[in-house]
Design a protein around this nucleic acid. Sequence first.
DNA 1: CTCATATACTCGTTCTCCGAGCATAAGCGG
DNA 2: CCGCTTATGCTCGGAGAACGAGTATATGAG
Lengths: 383, 383
Amino acid sequence: MTPVRRGQWQTAADVLTQVARQPGITRAGVARALRLSTGSATEVTARLRDVQLLTEEPAPSRGRGRPTTLLRAHPEGPVVLALDLRQSNWRTAIVTLDGSLENHQYKRHRSRRAQVVLDNLRRQVEQTQEQYGVRLQMVSLAVPGTVRDNHLLQAPTLEWAELDLTAVAGELPLLAGNDATLSGVAEARTGAAAGAGTAVHLIIEVGIGGTLLIDGVPAHGASGAGGEYGHMPFGDRARTCPCGARGCWDLEIDGRALARQLGEATPDDPVRYTEAVLRRTDRAALAAVAQVVSALASGIAGLVNAHDPDVVTIGGLAIPLRAAAPDAFDEAYRGGLMTFHRGAPPPVLAATHQVDGPLRGAAALALDQLTSEPAIAAWAARH
Amino acid sequence: MTPVRRGQWQTAADVLTQVARQPGITRAGVARALRLSTGSATEVTARLRDVQLLTEEPAPSRGRGRPTTLLRAHPEGPVVLALDLRQSNWRTAIVTLDGSLENHQYKRHRSRRAQVVLDNLRRQVEQTQEQYGVRLQMVSLAVPGTVRDNHLLQAPTLEWAELDLTAVAGELPLLAGNDATLSGVAEARTGAAAGAGTAVHLIIEVGIGGTLLIDGVPAHGASGAGGEYGHMPFGDRARTCPCGARGCWDLEIDGRALARQLGEATPDDPVRYTEAVLRRTDRAALAAVAQVVSALASGIAGLVNAHDPDVVTIGGLAIPLRAAAPDAFDEAYRGGLMTFHRGAPPPVLAATHQVDGPLRGAAALALDQLTSEPAIAAWAARH
DNA sequence: CTCATATACTCGTTCTCCGAGCATAAGCGG
DNA sequence: CCGCTTATGCTCGGAGAACGAGTATATGAG
C-alpha cells in the first residue's frame, strides 16, 4: 500500500464535489469550473473511471463542437443511504456520487414507539447492505429534533426520550442531523438560496427550526445542535417553553400561539390546527394570524440584523402564514430591520424543496464526506 | 511570468499560515503540524527564504536532539498596517508574517471630525508606505461601527454619518471591519476561545457588539455587517432603538439601560456612566445592575441555544457587570438555556485580549489574506 | 566520552498537472 | 455534400512538489 501522498486525489475530489453539487454536469463543464486543462481533465476522469467512481456517457449535444460526456456515478461506485424520519412516516433514498437520488421509498410508521421505529430503520440499513454490499459507505439520517453527536436529545413531535441513534447504522458511519438544518442545506445547495454566501433558513412545523448557512455549510455548533432559533428569547418572558427556557420565539409563531390568541385550548396537533385557522375568515382568526406573522417577521428581521444574510428562506407553515397576512409580514419585517438594511432588505423566499428537503440535505452532507479527498483516496486504494 | 500552477505554493502557504497563527513556532513544529517529511520541510523553508518571506534563527534548545530553528518574518518581507480607530484615540501597528506586532503607536484624536480623523489615518498609511515601500501590502482597519464593503454605515460612538473608508488606504487593499468582530477574531485565534470550533464573542461598550466565529473565522454575512447581535429583539418592543428597529437587546444592557432603571437622564457617555454606577453600593444601583446583567445573561443563553458554541467570550463592560452580579448572571444564563444545555453549559469566559483585541484581530484577518496561496504566489513571482 | 535523541540535509523516485500539438465529432453555409 | 468553424478529447514531454531512505549534525543523559 502506497503511503498517502499530499493532495494525491485532491483534484479528483474536486471533480467529484462538482459532480455531486451539480448533478448532470458535463466533463467539459467541470473542467471549466475547476480551470483544468483538457489534458488534466482526460487524466483525472480516466483515473476516476479506473477506480470505479465515475462513468461517462455521451452528452446531448448543445451546438457546435465535439460532444462532451455526462459524468455519472459508476454502477459499482460508493453509495449513501439517506433516511428522513418524520412524525408519521419515513423516507429513504440511495444517493450516488453524481448527487442523484435513486430507489425512493416512502413508508408509514406502524408504531411510533422509538424502539420499533429505530428497528425498522436498522432493518432498512441491513437490507441496503445486503443489496449494495461494500458499496454502501455511509448512512445519513434526518430527524425532527435536536441532534448532538448522533444522539437525539429532544424530539417534541415524536415524543421520544433522549436516544442514541448510532445503532441505526450498525458498523457504518452515521451522520444524523436535524431535519430543519438539513432542509436548509438543500435550499442552500440547490434551492431558493443557491449561490448565497450567507443564508438563513427557517421552517415552521411545531415550533420553528432552522439554520445559518455559510457557503452551503450549516453552522452546526460545537456538537451539532446549532440552529435552534426557536429558543431565542424573542417572545414574552412570562411564558415558559417546554425546552426549559422562557420567552422562546417558538411559543409565538406556531399553532400553540394561535390557540392562545384565540383563547382556545392548546391543540394536540399544532400543524393541523394552524391549517384549520388559516382556512377561517373570522376577524379573531385573522387577527391571531396577523399577530403570529408579525412575531415571525420581526424575529426574522432580528436574525437578519445579526447575520446579514444574502437571503432568507422559509418553509413549512411559514409559507401559508406569510401568504395569509403579507402586509403584516412586510411591516414587521421592515420595521425590525436596522435602518441600513432597509434600502435593500434580503429577500425572504419560499423554500423550493418541500418534503424532499431534509432527504436532499442529508444526501448533500453525506456526499460532502464521500467526495472529500481522504475518502476518495481510501476508496481508490481498494480498487 | 509562469502561469499559476495549481497548488504550486500551497504547502508554502500552509507553512506561513501556521507561522502567522502561532507566532514563535519552530520549523520542526510546523513540520509536525502539517505532517511534512523532513525533506519537504527543508525544501519549503528554503523556498520561502529565497523569496524573502521567512528567515530562520536558532531556537532555544528544549531537551535532546538537534536544535531546530524559529521561523521569523524576513526583514524584507511583506507587512500589513493594522489600524484600530477608537472613540477618542487610535492605535497602529505593523504586522509581519510571523504574526508579531511591531512599532505599536497610540495617538489621541485632536479633532473627532470624520474628515480630520480619516486624513490622519491616510497620512499614517502614507508614512508607512514611505518607510516600508512595496513591503506594505495591505491596510487592515478596525472601526467602532457597522461596516459593510469598506463603508462605515453607522458609528454611534463617533457620531459620524455614512462614510466611505477606502480612501484611507489609497491604492492599497483595505480590510475594514467592526471592532467587536475583530476582537472576537483575536479571542478565537489566541485568546480565551482559542481552539474552539464555534465561539460567540460579545463586547459591551455603548450597546453590544459581537460575532459568531467558526474555526476562527467570523461569520461576516453578505456584506461584512454580520454580528450585530445588539439589534436582535430580546428587549421590550415598546422601546425604539436609534438603529431604527424596536426592542433591541442593545437598549437593555448598557449605561442607557441603567439610567432608565434608575430614573436618571440618558447619559452622554454611557461607558463612564456604567462605571460610575458599578461603583455605587445603594440598593437602587445594585438592582439596576442586576437587571441589566440578567438581560445580558438571558440574551447570551438565547445565542447559546441558537448557535451551540463551545465557548462564549465577553469583553468590555460585560466583564465588570457580570462580576458585580454573578448570581444574577448565572441564574439568568442557566434559566435561559434549553434543558439539554444545562448539563454542561458552554463557559462564558472573560476575553483575554483587552484593548489590543481589535488590532490583533485586524492583524489576523489581514494575515489570512497575506498567507493565502495566491498572495504568496504573487509575491514569489516578484522575487 | 559515548550513546540516545531529535532534527536537518541530500538525492533519487513518484506522481500530478500543464501546455502544445494533434485528432475528432458535431453544426453551418455554400 | 463538402469544407469550415467550433468545442472538445487525446497524447506526450516536461516541470515541479513532495516523499522516503539514507546520512549528517547538534544537543542532553549517563
